[in-house]
C-alpha cells in the first residue's frame, strides 16, 4: 500500500473544484486512458485577468485526483504569469509530498496547466516537441530532459517515477541514460555490446577476450588455455600447463573462463573442455 499523506487522502476523498468551468477561458488536457491517468483542467479569468475559478476532471488513482485538486487550489487567484511558474514540485509540496513512484501525477498537473494557459493565449496546440524516446508512454527526449533538469534526476528509475518514460518494455533505458549523461555533461559510456554478433564476430571476440583477459591471469599461476573450436554457443577449449593437472580446473573453467566470456562476449556461451 502506498504511504499517502493525510492531505493526499483528504484531497482524494474530498476533491476541491471537481468538474468543468462553464464557458472556460483555458482548457488543458493531459494524459490518456491507455496510460492510466488523464486530467482535463479548465479555468475562468476575472476582469483583472486573474484565475477566478479552476476546475478539474481526472481519471486516475488517488494521487492523480489529489494532485489535480491541489493544482486548482494553488492556481486560484493567480495571474497567468504567476500560474505559469507553478512547478510539479509545488503541487507535491502542497500535498505534503507524494510517494516517489507517484511524482508523475504532479507532472501531469503542471503539464495540463501549461496547456490551459497556452490555449488561452491562443498559442496553437504545440506539436509534440522532440523525438519520442519511450514508445510505451509516448514520452519525448525534451520532456525527459526537462524533468531531469527541474527535479535533478540522476537515474532511469527516477526518470520513470516522474515521467513514466521507461516504465513499460524498458527498451529505452539506454537512451534515457544517455539523456541523463548529456544533461549532466558526462561522456556517455556505452557498456553494452552489439545485440547480435555474427559467427565470425563472435569467434573473434572470444579469441580477443581469451588473449587479453583470461590468459594473462591464468599464466600468473603457471597455466594456459587454448581455443579449440566454437560450435554454436559452445566454446571448446584445452587447458594447459598447471591448469591441465589442477584439481580445480573445472571450477576455473566454469566460474572464471565461462563467466568472463559470458560477460564480455554474449551471455549464451558455455565453455567445455575438449574430450581427450
Amino acid at each position: 500500500m502506498w504511504e499517502y499523506t493525510d492531505k493526499v487522502i483528504d484531497h482524494f476523498l474530498h476533491p476541491r473544484n471537481a468538474g468543468e468551468v462553464e464557458d472556460p477561458d483555458g482548457i488543458g488536457e493531459e494524459g490518456s486512458l491507455a496510460c492510466g491517468d488523464a486530467l482535463t483542467l479548465t479555468f475562468k479569468l476575472d476582469d483583472e485577468k486573474r484565475i477566478k475559478d479552476a476546475k478539474f476532471k481526472t481519471f486516475g488513482c488517488a494521487s492523480a485526483i489529489a494532485s489535480s485538486s491541489a493544482l486548482t487550489e494553488i492556481v486560484k487567484g493567480m495571474t497567468l504569469e504567476e500560474a505559469g511558474k507553478v512547478t510539479n514540485d509545488d503541487i507535491a509540496r502542497y500535498l505534503g509530498g507524494l510517494p516517489k513512484e507517484k511524482m508523475h501525477c504532479s507532472v501531469m498537473g503542471r503539464n495540463a496547466l501549461e496547456k490551459a494557459i497556452a490555449y488561452y493565449r491562443g498559442e496553437a496546440e504545440k506539436k509534440v516537441e522532440g523525438e519520442i524516446v519511450c514508445e510505451c508512454f509516448g514520452v519525448t527526449d525534451l520532456q525527459i530532459e526537462r524533468a531531469i533538469r527541474e527535479n535533478n534526476l540522476a537515474t532511469v528509475e527516477e526518470v520513470t517515477d516522474y515521467t513514466k518514460a521507461g516504465g513499460g518494455c524498458e527498451s529505452c533505458h539506454e537512451k534515457i541514460e544517455e539523456i541523463i549523461d548529456k544533461v549532466f555533461g558526462k561522456p556517455h559510456v556505452v557498456h553494452r555490446k552489439p545485440a547480435r554478433l555474427t559467427n565470425i564476430q563472435k569467434i573473434k571476440l572470444i579469441e580477443e577476450t581469451l588473449e587479453r583477459e583470461i590468459k594473462p591471469s591464468l599464466k600468473k599461476d603457471g597455466g594456459d588455455i587454448e581455443l579449440i573450436d566454437v560450435v554454436g554457443n559452445t566454446v571448446i577449449v584445452k587447458l594447459r600447463g598447471t591448469c591441465a593437472t589442477c584439481v580445480a580446473s573445472q571450477v576455473t573453467l566454469k566460474h572464471y573462463v565461462e563467466s568472463k566470456l559470458r560477460e564480455l562476449v554474449t551471455p549464451e556461451l558455455t565453455v567445455e573442455e575438449v574430450q581427450q
Binding site: 487522502i9 476523498l13 492510466g36 491517468d37 481519471f59 486516475g60 488513482c61 488517488a62
Partner: peptide, 14 residues
C-alpha cells in the same frame, strides 16, 4: 470502464 482501480480500492477501504 473509465475509472481507475486504486481509486476504487481506496474508496472501498473507507
Amino acid at each position: 470502464e473509465y475509472v481507475e482501480g486504486e481509486a476504487i480500492l481506496l474508496m472501498m477501504n473507507e
